[in-house]
Design a protein around this nucleic acid. Sequence first.
DNA 1: TAATCTATGTCAGGATACTGACATGAGTCA
DNA 2: TGACTCATGTCAGTATCCTGACATAGATTA
Lengths: 152, 152
Amino acid sequence: MSQNGGGIDLDKSLGYLLKEASSALRAAMEEVLRPLGMSVTHYSCLELLAQRPGLSNSELARGAFVTRQTMNVLLQALERDGYVTRPAEAPVGKVLPTRLTPRGRRSLEKATIAVRSVEVRMLAGMTETEQSDAFRILQSMIRSLRDGNDGA
Amino acid sequence: MSQNGGGIDLDKSLGYLLKEASSALRAAMEEVLRPLGMSVTHYSCLELLAQRPGLSNSELARGAFVTRQTMNVLLQALERDGYVTRPAEAPVGKVLPTRLTPRGRRSLEKATIAVRSVEVRMLAGMTETEQSDAFRILQSMIRSLRDGNDGA
DNA sequence: TAATCTATGTCAGGATACTGACATGAGTCA
DNA sequence: TGACTCATGTCAGTATCCTGACATAGATTA
């Protein structure tokens, strides 16, 4: 019944399932972040800065999977509201190293708790072996997709 | 070094990896669909209709992971350009069953070939066992995330 | 040194998807 | 039958993110 002339069977497609899982994860994260007035990209930016202080706009963009233009707009808002600081002039080159303010750190703490609950829920019912399998398999998929992008 | 005070270690987070994989997949699909003048949502809509002719606007939206408003705009464009047809009046209720036209079917054929190449590339280097593992694990993650949405 | 290439930060405009809102049709229940 | 609930299609406004473009700083190369 689900066999169409050469088409891709969505019910059996790993790509479709990947999109579905990602969509469900994003929706779950939006749900817990909304009460905190924070978007997923917003949270990603703060979490990246907590782990690697001094990241530049472009590096943050790559880490949050958006363009540097999009991240730039977000950083301007975060800076205006006092969550992050950037030097007025670049210490070297054009790169402006960004850092969390105490206020940004406090804001992140609540968000981290919320996001962790989603991650825990997602992992519920998976054995340790399945979790490491998932990790390895996802990395394999990413590597395969990236290699073909501009490598050949 | 990547240990921050109670934060989420992105390098070890399955959620982050899932987002990365999904982002890579989407980029790869956009790359092969762009020469055909087709977006991912555009393609998803056509593929859904090929497998389940007569799907409604709302059903297509859920299948493509967008809102019904977004899908409605897309369907209006696809109808205007002759890729799909919808009856002027609903046979029953308000639901307008949508079907591919021959032109839509031809357009989908090329897209399917392009998307299949991406899927094949993504699966490269994975054993059959790993593929079925990935399938089962992703389904587990989706189920866990959905259950907590409005269930409790 | 000078030329070229690459990466960065930023501005402007446009594409895409979402939230809010409304009227309508179908099912449920008293 | 009538009130209620729910899902649908659709319009309008908004938010979000992207593409295109520019000037500039550092690295690379001749």
